[in-house]
């Protein structure tokens, strides 16, 4: 069979595509769910934070602002010494600066920071992209369970799988 000229074949491709449904997702009306691992927004679990400043120090563009103070907490055991704990006064992330690299989440030794795939937090004013610790805490609701891993992955001790 003789090959069709390329000009005609091209017309066929566009015509076929026209007759197939479009792939557009009508964004505000319908939404795609981003994958669970998507780095959308950082959520803060305040009670886990010990104000160690590791995240703020390892941030490549210094967009995390932390202030805290020392406080005394009642002793764990009866008759023990009162414990010294660190309390968080301020924990701000400036999403106008953030590069979404995720280093802060990784370095956190006490699991106080989590990624959430939520992405709808654009603002009219750039100053409002600075999320304070209440707003960061609100994102905790949207943090998904970590995914099960692909076959052949090394199962860490204590991890459920």
């Amino acid at each position: 069979m003789a090959e069709l000229p390329g000009l005609i074949k091209g017309l066929g491709v566009t015509l076929r595509t026209m007759l197939r449904p479009a792939v557009t997702v009508q964004y505000p009306h319908e939404k795609e769910t981003p994958p669970t691992r998507s780095r959308g927004v950082i959520a803060l679990k305040e009670e886990n934070c010990t104000v160690c400043m590791l995240c703020a120090r390892s941030c490549p563009d210094w967009c995390i602002y932390i202030e805290g103070h020392k406080d005394k907490a009642p002793p764990r055991r009866e008759g023990g010494k009162p414990r010294t704990i660190q309390l968080l006064d301020r924990f701000d992330i400036d999403y106008g600066l953030c590069m979404y690299c995720g280093i802060c989440v990784e370095v956190c030794p006490f699991d106080a920071l989590f990624w959430s795939p939520e992405y709808e937090y654009s603002e009219v004013s750039i100053a409002e992209l600075l999320h304070d610790k209440e707003r960061l805490g609100d994102w905790m609701k949207t943090v998904p369970e970590p995914l099960a891993l692909e076959a052949g992955a090394e199962v860490k001790k204590g991890a459920k799988n």
Partner: peptide, 23 residues
């Protein structure tokens, strides 16, 4: 889905990877 970033994966670590592939 694997790395968490569409354009900027930042998935490589010295000596390995950030985490394993999802199921």
């Amino acid at each position: 889905a694997a790395t968490g970033g569409r354009f900027h994966p930042n998935y490589d670590r010295i000596g390995g990877l950030k985490e394993d592939l999802p199921k």
